Simulated assay, not measured.
Amino acid sequence: MQATNQDNFHQSRESLEKKASEDIQEKIVAAILFCCALISVLTTFGIVFIIFQVAFEFFQEVSFAEFFLDTKWTPLFAERHFGVWPLINGTFLTTAIAMSVAIPLGLCSAIYLSEYAPPKVAAILRPAFELLAGIPTVVYGYFALLFITPLLRNFLPLEIFNALSAGLMMGVMITPTVGSISLDAIRAVPRSLREGAYALGITKLESIFKVVLPAALSGISASIILGISRAVGETMTVVIAAGQQPRITVNLLESVETMTAYMAQISGGDSPRGSVNFKTLYAVGAVLFILTLSLNIVSYWISNRFKEKYD
């Protein structure tokens, strides 16, 4: 009897020691994960702090009125102007072209892979489709400059560097972003909704546009907003193919300069550190940060506002 009690005591003690060891391991893992998350948060806050700190110094020398009301951007010229609107115009122009390509291509691809493609075909096409997102953006830029532009110049009076070629290649580059998220949103729609639509006698195409797409509106809208955010922040493609001519124009055939292209230009090291020209990098970066943050907030709001929940 005494031996049995001792065995039970040893087993209980070993169990408690094992549980204590597991608790310590869990706490160590939790601490490591917390540190990783904290590093990400602190890095983000550090970037934002530096950007807005130098941007504040810039606005000590250049007024808000000159920055937001002037229509010329020539900070590197003898007659300097700091109106940011030409850069914003170039960014929005190339983004509009890109989304006019990415939205129909991405959405149609998502509809085909979800509703029409056989499972084996979809299993092959989706990885191939998403492979476009893995191509370096510099490759897209040179492809636009050396192939798309010469091809289009056979039909249109394009400048060597132009918004159209850059926007078209950006659209192809962003298509996987729009298509993949839209595909996940469409596949998340319950099969019962489709079957209910078929029971009412409507065709498959009608069920897609009247039932499936409205039910997946939240995810599709989020994919479009994220695609716009990606286009606004794209750098290498517009640096190589769109040019560096800041101007306010809606002519797709002309050269324009985007905010990211100007930031890449200043980052080359030609402007002395601490000069006004150097500080324009952070001022433009602050505007770009606010734009992308606003787009992400809108995407998050749309996702929650139009989110459908099914049992």
Rank of each mutant, 00 (worst) to 15 (best):
Phe9Lys: 14
Ser12Val: 14
Arg13Trp: 15
Lys18Tyr: 13
Ile28His: 09
Ala30Leu: 13
Ala31Ser: 12
Ile32Phe: 11
Phe34Asn: 07
Cys35Tyr: 14
Ile39Met: 00
Ile47Gln: 00
Ile50Asp: 05
Ile50Ser: 07
Ile51Asp: 03
Phe56Asp: 12
Phe56Glu: 08
Lys72Pro: 01
Leu76Asn: 13
Phe77Leu: 12
Phe82Trp: 10
Phe82Met: 02
Trp85Asp: 00
Pro86Asn: 00
Phe92Trp: 09
Thr94Ile: 07
Thr95Ser: 05
Met99Asn: 06
Met99His: 10
Tyr112Gln: 01
Tyr116Arg: 00
Tyr116Leu: 00
Ala123Trp: 07
Pro127Lys: 09
Ala128Arg: 04
Thr137Ser: 14
Leu145Ser: 07
Asn154Trp: 10
Pro157His: 12
Ala166Gly: 11
Leu168Lys: 08
Leu168Gln: 06
Met169Arg: 05
Thr175Asp: 06
Gly179Tyr: 10
Asp184Trp: 07
Arg191Ala: 13
Ser192Arg: 13
Ser192Cys: 06
Gly196His: 10
Glu206Asn: 13
Lys210Phe: 11
Val211Phe: 09
Ser221Arg: 01
Ala222Leu: 11
Ile224Phe: 05
Ile225Thr: 01
Thr235His: 00
Met236Thr: 06
Ile240Val: 10
Ala242Thr: 06
Glu254Cys: 07
Ser255Thr: 10
Thr260Cys: 09
Thr260Ile: 09
Met263Gly: 05
Ile266Cys: 02
Arg273Lys: 08
Asn277Gly: 14
Phe278Met: 01
Leu281Lys: 04
Gly285Lys: 06
Leu288Phe: 10
Phe289Ala: 03
Ile290Trp: 07
Leu293Glu: 05
Val298Gln: 07
Ser303Ala: 11
Phe306Thr: 03
Phe306Cys: 03
Tyr310Leu: 03
Tyr310Asp: 01
